[in-house]
Amino acid sequence: MLQVSIYRYNPETDSAPYMQEFQVDTQGRDVMVLDVLHMVKEQDNGMAYRRSCREGVCGSDGMNMNGKNGLACITPLSEVVKDGKLTLRPLPGLPVIRDLVVDMGLFYKQYERIQPYLQNDTPAPAIERLQSPEDRDKLDGLYECILCACCSTSCPSFWWNPDKFVGPAGLLQSYRFLADSRDTATRDRLAELEDPFSVFRCRGIMNCVAVCPKGLNPTRAIGKIRDMLLANAT
């Protein structure tokens, strides 16, 4: 029997959030945390959490498992359970809608702010724009982001200034377009990032790198943006 402790809050009935204990029989198998949640939901129909692809590519089920952010669907119990106990909380730093479901509005707003789309002011050719494999390699480690918010919600700088600091996820995507040889809006993009908050609130804490379920490195991308800003302004 696995003891699971889960953060519960239903705005219609609860005046304050609380932790609820569940006993789950995994029959000794090393299942994923998401499977455990399915089992809990059969005990308590009202348990709310997001899920979709169940294979770690859609980014729905980011949550805090025994103190560390990650995706429930690709986190096996063996990796996270300590002393036979599993504690599940919503991603920290964002408003809770219900149980493990957070309001991702601010996170998405910061993503939209960096203009997350290719901009190219030259007329498009009849075929694709050519790009050398070396230039394409520069996008590896950047475009794979699944917007699960594990990184930004583990970042103290994002906790303190979620409205002003773009956060690791947004900045990783910002650099994805700055690094793309096909994008021509580099100057405008950099101008938008020069202020003291958007990029420079990053203090190099590197929680983002520690939790990214896709193994990406936002801190490095932020460093590259700083280098570009410096090169551009000096």
């Binding site: 020069e194 908050f197 958007s198 420079f200 410096l230």
Partner: peptide
């Protein structure tokens, strides 16, 4: 761009 008037050089980069 987040505007701010109280920081040192009005630019995160110069700060």
């Amino acid at each position: 761009m987040v505007t701010n008037i109280t920081n040192f050089g009005r630019s995160g980069l110069s700060d």
